[in-house]
Design a binder for these strands. Structure first.
Lengths: 332, 332
DNA sequence: CTGAAAGCGCTTACAG
DNA sequence: CTGAAAGCGCTTACAG
């Protein structure tokens, strides 16, 4: 059963294709009586414009991609970072009546496929979040004239606008609080050092500690719960007397908490813990997790807003930095 | 900077547009020397076919939609059901080199927009999961000739093929285990009664209990953690002597566990708990949650596989039912 | 305010 | 094996 076309609507309404097109696109220059007749024909036929045909002439698709260069198993794990970003982006795109196309690019193959997809003009713009290393993708797409905006400052030479969260200050606030509450041996479980979030939170930890006379004690995880537990066990082995740990994500903090308790440490009496994110989990750990709150959904929304402006040809800021905030619960 | 077209590649390679098209689409009837020349021109120009133009003639887009008629805040909550389905679907679509378009339709407005999107031939087929009530969407799309496949049996008259999990038997296995381990007052926290998963798990509970001389004790939640806690408190009030509860999702079971402990009940000594899903959380509750495992990712994969067959014009089964399995941990 | 016509960038019978 | 030509379903100057 072939879908009805403009042509058939025009025939039925007794007007030209151009006129039907004007009605469909809400052009103001159509007589009211004709508009009504065309609308009726559209309804009777169940006409819906063919998007491919429309895109071919307008050069727009009204779709935007969110690219997450991660394996599906990480994006769709119990890490609440990704859902938060997706939710923010889709809220904002929805209200602009644009379609979100979500692309998860774990492998090199899918990375390449996504590049081709974007270059095939499937979409009007691209959002990239959770980048690793100096990913060439944003630069490549931007050079081909595709509007691109990153979540988190791109590493390397890439000059592409971005929206991020104040990771350095978040790390500083956490460590400052630990110092102020009298902790003396403050360790950290950092995030992956090929990601800005991992790098900057560690920087914050180091900067704040440098102001005191404490030395830094560092282990590195990959933002998963398991890596947090592994890192915590390693820290305890390296420095059995540590009395605080700043963990670069709540999920890792949960793993660390379990490792601490398994090792017979009381939290917060023996060891204080501060996470990063403030995902729902933070309220359900035992004891509830003190953490640095970052506006994840807000970051997604801001990313979409900036991209829409960029795609509309407006000029936007090179970067937008969203504030973080310390939330004290039961682990400090 | 305008993207290069077929025309320009043809000019550069000194051949016709038809020949370039054949090379791009791997037609075997092209002389090797010409093929090489065209490939070189494509590389030099960085040519990527315009998908809108291609779709207009082929009537295909190589994209498939996964529609989730839920609010974004539910899809992107810490409920691991949605990520699991998405992950399974995207795995299968990826390996068929198809693009996944994820659509979350919480409101009536977005529901309508999605219908238009599908009818605009943006996609070659549609997957719908997590339906509520007798949603007209699958029937509407199928009637317009769009290949449609549902996750979970559609309620109402809709005759659309589906893939689901054996919810009834899952409920039965849980209750049977509770009976066999000597529990006498077995309650249930059912899922929403406008969803097959909610209805069928309750049916399983009822059927199994009917074989014994126990009476049923029922509360209803909406699959969220909070609703599980609320329902548990209500059950304890209704029947303070209950000694077991079958909960229709792990997330609700977590809420129920917390409510039980807050009410001073020991688990499993005073009250046994069995959940449903076997998401990662089930291993992290205290004590670890006994549950009915359903193959969530597997369901997503099977859905995509069936849809691809359908879209390719093959005939497929009206329904595929995946088995569930009882997993005993610390709450029974 | 409305229509005839060109054109967006491809694919695919049809000839040769 | 290759090319000329038609056509997919729209939008948009351009006339009138």
């Amino acid at each position: 059963m072939p879908r009805p076309t403009l042509e058939q609507v025009a025939q039925r309404a007794g007007v030209s294709r151009a006129t039907v097109s004007r009605v469909v696109n809400d052009s103001p220059t159509v007589a009211e009586s004709i508009r009504t007749a065309v609308r009726r024909a559209i309804d009777e036929l169940g006409y819906v414009p063919n998007q491919a045909a429309r895109s071919l002439v307008t050069q727009r698709t009204d779709s935007y991609a969110l690219i997450l260069p991660e394996s599906p198993s990480r994006v769709f794990s119990d890490d609440q970072f990704f859902p938060g970003i997706i939710r923010g982006v889709s809220q904002e795109l929805d209200s602009a009546d644009k379609q979100l196309v979500l692309m998860v690019a774990g492998s090199q193959a899918s990375h390449d496929r996504i590049e081709r997809y974007a270059l095939a003009r499937h979409i009007d713009g691209v959002l990239i979040a959770s980048m690793h290393g100096a990913d060439p993708l944003p630069g490549t797409l931007a050079r081909m004239g595709i509007p691109v905006l990153c979540g988190g400052r791109p590493l390397g030479q890439t000059r592409v606008p971005y929206v991020e969260v104040d990771n350095v200050n978040g790390g500083r606030m956490a460590v400052r609080h630990l110092l102020e509450t009298g902790r003396t041996r403050i360790a950290t479980i950092a995030g992956p050092q090929d990601m800005v979030a991992g790098i900057d939170r560690l920087t914050g930890y180091r900067e704040e500690l440098r102001g005191s006379d404490r030395r830094s004690i560092v282990a590195v995880g990959d933002f998963t719960r398991d890596s947090g537990a592994v890192a915590m066990r390693q820290l305890l082995e390296d420095d059995p007397d540590l009395d605080a740990v700043f963990v670069a994500s709540d999920l890792m903090a949960h793993g660390a908490l379990q490792a601490l308790q398994a090792a017979g440490r009381r939290v917060p009496d023996d060891v204080a813990v501060i996470g990063f994110d403030d995902i729902a989990l933070a309220r359900y750990t035992e004891p509830p997790l003190s953490t640095v709150r970052q506006p994840i959904v807000g970051q997604g929304r801001e990313m979409a807003r900036q991209l829409l402006r960029l795609a509309a040809g407006e000029s936007i800021a090179d970067s937008v930095i969203l504030p973080t905030e310390l939330v004290i619960r039961g682990t400090t």
